[in-house]
Simulated assay, not measured.
Amino acid sequence: MTITQLKYVLMVAEHKNFTKAAEKTFVTQPTLSMQIQKLEDELDILVFDRSTKPLRLTAVGQQIVEQARKIVNEANRMQDIVDQQKGYIGGDFKLGIIPTVMPTLLPMFLKAFTRKHPKVQLKIEELNTEECIQKLNEGNLDAAIAATPLANESILERVIYFEPFVAYITENHRLFSKKEITVDDLDLEDILLLEDGHCFRDGVINLCKASKINNIDKFQLESGSFETLIKLSNEGLGMTLLPYLHTLDIKDNEKKYLRHFKEPSPAREVSIIQHKSELKPQIIDALFNVISGIVRGAIAFQDVKIISPLNKK
C-alpha cells in the first residue's frame, strides 16, 4: 500500500463520493477508484459500501480510515520537521474560525498575515466550535480560532486574547440610564440571544447563571447574527450583549447605547486551537504572532473574568 492510496481513502471518506474526491485530489475518477480497489484487494476487505448513496464506510473500513489518518499525519510530520529546520513558512494551511469571531477578526489580520507570509496558502472556513473540533480530529483542519476553554483532551489551546462582553442598551430599556453595568443587572428575560449552536450564546447564558438567574425558558427572540440583534434592540425588543471587537464597527449614532461592565469585566477567551499531534507548528506560531500583535493594539482590557463557552444547561 502507498501513502497516496491512503490519502485517496481519506478523501473519499470525507466527501462520501468518488467523483468529488477525485476532483479534490486532482486525479481522474477511474484512477482514484483503481488505487482504492488495489488497496482493498491487498487487504482483502471492503473499505466502502458502494451500494449506498452517499457511500458509507464498512465496519472494518471505519477502522482502516482511523489508522490511515494517523499514518498520513505522521508522514506529513516528516515534511514539517524539514520545514522547521529550514525555517520555511509556506504551503497549504486550513484554518477554521467560529462565526462570532470571523467577521471582526479576519479583516484585522488577513492582509497583514498574507503580506508577511506570502508562501502560505490559507484556506479559511467559517465553522462552529463542534465542527472545528471534528475537522481537527479528522485531519481536515490544521488549526482553528475559537472561544475556549474547551476541556477536550485531543485539542491543544493557545490563548490569543481576552475579549470583554459589552452591553447594547437602547433608551426604553430599564438599564439605559446606567453608565456602567454589573452581571447582577442582567436578566435573561430581556436579553436578545444568538440562536442555538453559537458558543457566544452559551457564554451569555452561563454569565447570567453565574448571577443566579436561572430561568432561560422565557426568551423568545433569537438570531444568527449580531447585526440582527442590534436591529431588534433598536426596535425596543430588549438589550443584547456583544463581543468587544464587534463594537468597534458600531455606527456613530449607535455608540451611545454601548455600556461596559464594571471591572472585572466578563470576557471570552479566544484561542488558536490545534490537534495534539501539532502538525505545521511553524505556521501556527506565525498566525499567533500576527493576530496577537494586531489585537493587542485594539483591546486594552486587562482586568477580566473569563466566561466559559461550554454549554452548561
Rank of each mutant, 00 (worst) to 15 (best):
D249L: 09
K255P: 05
A210E: 14
E171H: 12
T148C: 11
Y161A: 04
D285W: 01
K255L: 02
I45E: 11
Q220R: 13
V159F: 01
P281Y: 01
S265Q: 14
A286V: 01
C199F: 13
S211G: 08
A75T: 14
G293L: 09
N140A: 06
L287N: 04
L232S: 13
F165H: 13
I36A: 05
S265G: 03
E157P: 08
T25W: 00
D202P: 00
T129I: 11
S292Y: 04
G90L: 11
A59M: 10
L6W: 07
M108Y: 02
F109E: 06
M34S: 04
D83V: 07
T2Y: 01
D196H: 15
T240Y: 13
V204H: 07
L248K: 14
T228A: 04
F48H: 08
Q134C: 04
R268E: 05
P243R: 15
V183L: 10
L32K: 10
D196E: 15
L6Q: 14
V101F: 10
V295A: 04
I272D: 05
D217K: 12
L32R: 09
L122P: 03
D44H: 09
P164N: 06
T4Q: 11
G297Y: 05
L10F: 03
I155N: 08
T52L: 13
E195S: 15
Q62H: 06
M11F: 03
V72W: 15
T247S: 06
Y8N: 09
K276S: 02
I64K: 04
A112R: 12
K256P: 01
G197M: 07
Q29F: 11
G293I: 06
Y244T: 06
G297I: 11
R115H: 04
K218D: 08
E227N: 14
L192C: 09
Q282Y: 01
S277I: 13
K255R: 15
I299K: 02
A13T: 06
C132E: 15
G236D: 12
A210V: 00
Y161S: 05
E222P: 00
H117K: 02
D187Y: 08
V290S: 10
D41S: 14
S33E: 12
K179Y: 03
T19F: 13
L207C: 05
L136R: 02
I250N: 02
T25Y: 00
V204F: 07
N215K: 13
F109I: 05
H198A: 09
Q67S: 14
T28N: 09
L106A: 09
H173T: 04
L221T: 07
T28I: 04
K256C: 09
N172K: 14
D184M: 10
V27I: 13
F113K: 12
Q302T: 07
E42I: 02
T129D: 05
E40F: 11
L258M: 06
L136Y: 01
L188S: 14
I230P: 01
S223F: 12
L110S: 11
Q121P: 00
I160A: 10
V120H: 03
E14S: 08
G203M: 15
L122F: 05
G91A: 12
F200K: 08
L39Q: 05
L39K: 00
P164E: 04
E269P: 01
R268S: 07
M78C: 00
I81Q: 10
D185R: 03
P30K: 02
G203N: 14
K262Q: 08
F48K: 09
Y8H: 08
H117P: 03
D142I: 02
I97Y: 07
T170N: 06
Q85M: 13
L287A: 07
L188I: 14
K255H: 03
E153L: 08
V159W: 01
E125T: 02
